[in-house]
Write a protein that binds this DNA or RNA. Structure first.
Lengths: 343, 343
DNA sequence: TTGTAAGCGTTATCAC
DNA sequence: GTGATAACGCTTACAA
């Protein structure tokens, strides 16, 4: 009836008393066990056990000026692709003894600035940001508080920020070229909402650039912007099919849009990729599992999270680190087809 | 060249000096603005602005003994369903001025205990746990540190813990009954890995119970346990199809398994739901969008997150709160079919 | 190897 | 309304 019924949380001094040592020794035993005599350490461990002692993080943080906490500011968790990256981040950090603090902003720059401040206020030792474009106050705060950070998912053209990410524009160009090489001329695109989302913008830009190089463009009725939802994809596809001539290749801004678009094609009796080549970005493994013929650009999002975590871990440990790394994306060609013969 | 180039983070005392008041007043102005004269408050706001002051959370937490932080311990973020709940949690908490600390344990009870301790150490004001079965030390720590908590996703039969969740077993029973009513007799199931996952177990139990009530069971070769992945679903279905007679109704433990199973059926030329009725738990909106005829049990996961957050917010504010609430689940019948006539 | 004691940046309790 | 000042629980020189 002792350890199991402690009713008020023990503090360091309690452990010290029980182990008959000073608080300094307990503190050392807890953070650098090799700095105390094994016998003492054992006694302390015993006392900790007995009292169910758990360190008070705030006090520890105040005194040591470190929290072993990393903050991540992401657009939303409501998208498997970011959840994935976050998951990898979390796992890697956890293995290194860090805790992840997640905040999302739903693509609103003001909110992003607010939550970033909240994280800094929480004393994060490092910060993972998504994308390169941020509210000026974000960079100001980071600078003022000297918080190590890394931009992810994108590459910083200015070279001013550490980053680890993908070249979305190049990926989009590859996607479009692939379709051009198959002989498509009639393109259309269902993009995600571009406001506050540089990745969506990059994808559109890349496609436009590749087409322009062939004297083509996303003409009127050939481009729609929809939220990243199934119904967004359905609606987008429906609208695109109203234009004449019908596009032979439709590029979707992400996997959810593509699946929605695919559903709409099925509903209308259009064969994919027979009547229409449908392609997109992000995973689509699920859609591809059910419907062959979906060519996609795959982003290694888990690797991204792991790398970002490692970058910060290394930096915080004073070890060398890559200031900037580009992760390769993969064009996964799954039975794309040439445009159907003109009727 | 003043506010924009501060190089070392300002502290409360700096603000106090600049505003010509004491630190006590600044502190008050920041936390209860109504307790200081408007003019003073204005001067302080001005100083804060000028110095780019951001409070030091650890110091604040140490002195006030609150962190305005809530911890959530979830199995994994690598599953849309939990990411969803987490997202809702986060949004609701953020609106109330709380920050979410997420930790996941990949279905390992030891890890769960470890990360829970980490969260308590971080000083979370409240804790969201998933499921009712936890390592004893989890409840011990919660008790010792008097951390308000709420169990989610499940209902606590013992009535000892505040909880807000679903009745997974009842949901599984409904699913099975639905198929029984359609006239199926040959059942099979692809479950998720049950170790460390009470939800997976509940679903299996529910199905077994409903079948037993009709004198049926998941006989040999009619039950497989696979990881929640597409290939898990494919393999599972492949194995189930080896048994003779072939099952006419296959229930999948979750949506990803169901989609994998569906892919396997497609690959083998089996029509769903013509040759085989395929059903499952969790969302499956995506699979259903592409393939009609998938009946599922839908769990309102976003509501769950929001409710859990509200529960803690109310408790921490000393307001009344529901100790326990069951959220209704929905059987979404999408073109289920009776078993094909025996050949 | 261990102990002493001075902070760490707030909040909160008093007086004024 | 506002100002001193003592906590808050831990880390970390510096001494011993």
């Amino acid at each position: 009836m002792k350890s199991s019924s402690q009713h008020k949380a023990a503090k360091l001094a309690d452990v010290a008393r029980l182990a008959r040592v000073s608080t300094a020794t307990v503190s050392r035993a807890l953070t650098r066990p090799d700095k105390v005599k094994p016998a003492t350490a054992a006694r302390i461990r015993q006392a900790v056990q007995e009292l169910g002692y758990v360190a008070h993080g705030a006090a520890r943080a105040l005194a040591s000026r470190r929290t072993r906490t990393i903050g991540a500011v992401i657009p939303t968790l409501d998208n498997a692709i970011f959840a994935n990256t976050t998951h990898a981040l979390q796992k890697t950090l956890d293995d290194a003894g860090y805790t992840l603090l997640v905040a999302s902003h739903e693509f609103d720059a003001e909110v992003e600035a607010r939550v970033t401040q909240a994280l800094i206020e929480r004393g994060v030792d490092g910060l993972v940001l998504l994308g390169t474009s941020h509210h000026p106050s974000v960079f100001r705060m980071i600078h003022t508080h000297q918080v190590p950070y890394v931009l992810t998912w994108a590459l910083d053209a200015s070279g001013r920020h550490p980053c680890i990410g993908f070249d979305s524009r190049a990926a989009a160009i590859r996607m479009a070229r692939h379709l051009l090489e198959l002989g498509h001329h009639e393109f259309a695109m269902v993009s995600g909402i571009m406001a506050g989302n540089e990745r969506a913008r990059d994808r559109v830009e890349g496609v436009r650039e590749a087409l322009a190089a062939h004297g083509l463009r996303l003409g009127p009725g050939r481009f729609v912007e929809k939220p990243y939802t199934l119904s967004g994809g359905r609606e987008g596809m429906r609208e695109l099919l109203e234009a004449a001539p019908r596009p032979t290749a439709v590029i979707c801004g992400n996997d959810v849009l593509a699946i929605g678009a695919l559903a709409e094609c099925h509903a209308l009796g259009l064969a994919v990729p027979g009547d229409l080549s449908l392609t997109g970005f992000d995973d689509m493994e699920i859609a591809a599992a059910i419907t062959p013929g979906l060519t996609t650009v795959h982003f290694p999002t888990a690797e991204l999270g792991a790398y970002a975590a490692q970058h910060l871990i290394a930096r915080l440990a004073g070890e060398p680190f890559e200031p900037c790394v580009e992760l390769p994306v993969e064009l996964v060609v799954r039975g794309s087809s040439a445009p159907p013969p003109k009727s």
